[in-house]
Amino acid sequence: MSKTLASAGNLRYVITFCGTCDCGCPELFLDDAAPPERRVVLTDDFGQRVRMSLAQLKVLVDDIKDGALDKVVTAVV
């Protein structure tokens, strides 16, 4: 997966998470042609995709900002 995935369809590249290697880091895209509940596309390095709405993405981002994953991240680091 890479930014070139965006050129394969209606996906608009937003960000690569990590991006410091060439292992197929998770990426976030927007699919403007998709129904609103499936507009956000998150890819992983195994070729899988998760689709969600912008509202769901906002809740996820807000939860992360509020520390919902802090314990998980500190346990790994």
Rank of each mutant, 00 (worst) to 15 (best):
D63T: 05
G19H: 07
T74F: 05
D45H: 04
V77L: 14
S2N: 14
D32I: 05
D66G: 12
T4W: 08
L5P: 05
V77R: 15
V61P: 00
C25N: 05
M1T: 11
L54C: 02
D70K: 15
D62I: 01
T4F: 08
G47H: 03
Q56V: 04
D44I: 00
M52V: 03
N10W: 02
V59H: 02
I15F: 11
R12N: 10
V59A: 04
T16E: 14
C25T: 02
R38D: 15
P36G: 06
D62K: 05
T74D: 13
C23T: 04
Q56M: 03
A68L: 11
A68G: 09
F46N: 04
L42G: 02
F17Q: 06
G9I: 05
L28V: 14
Q48Y: 01
T4C: 03
G24Q: 03
I64C: 12
M52G: 10
L69V: 14
A33W: 02
M1K: 13
E37I: 09
V59L: 07
K65W: 02
D31Q: 09
F46R: 04
G24P: 06
R38T: 14
P35A: 15
D62Q: 08
G24H: 05
D44W: 00
V14N: 08
G47L: 01
L28H: 04
V72Q: 13
A68K: 15
P35M: 08
D31L: 10
F46S: 06
A55K: 10
L69S: 13
V40Y: 05
D62G: 02
V41G: 01
V14R: 14
V73I: 15
F29D: 07
V59T: 09
D31H: 08
G19F: 08
C21M: 03
R51N: 01
L54W: 00
A68H: 13
L28R: 03
R38C: 10
L57S: 03
F17D: 09
M1F: 11
V61S: 01
R49I: 08
L60T: 10
P26G: 09
V50I: 13
G24I: 02
V40W: 07
V40P: 03
D45N: 01
G19E: 06
I64G: 07
A75S: 15
K58L: 04
T43W: 02
K3R: 14
R51F: 02
S53F: 06
M52Y: 05
N10F: 06
D45Q: 00
F29Q: 09
Y13Q: 09
P26F: 08
C23V: 07
V40N: 08
L11Q: 07
R49G: 00
G19A: 08
V50H: 05
D63A: 14
P36T: 11
A8Q: 14
L60W: 05
G47P: 06
L54H: 01
R39W: 06
V41S: 03
A8R: 14
F46T: 00
T43V: 07
I15N: 11
P35G: 14
A34D: 13
E27Q: 13
D31C: 07
A34Q: 11
A55S: 12
R12D: 11
L28C: 06
D22Q: 10
L54V: 10
V41N: 02
R12H: 10
L30T: 13
L30F: 15
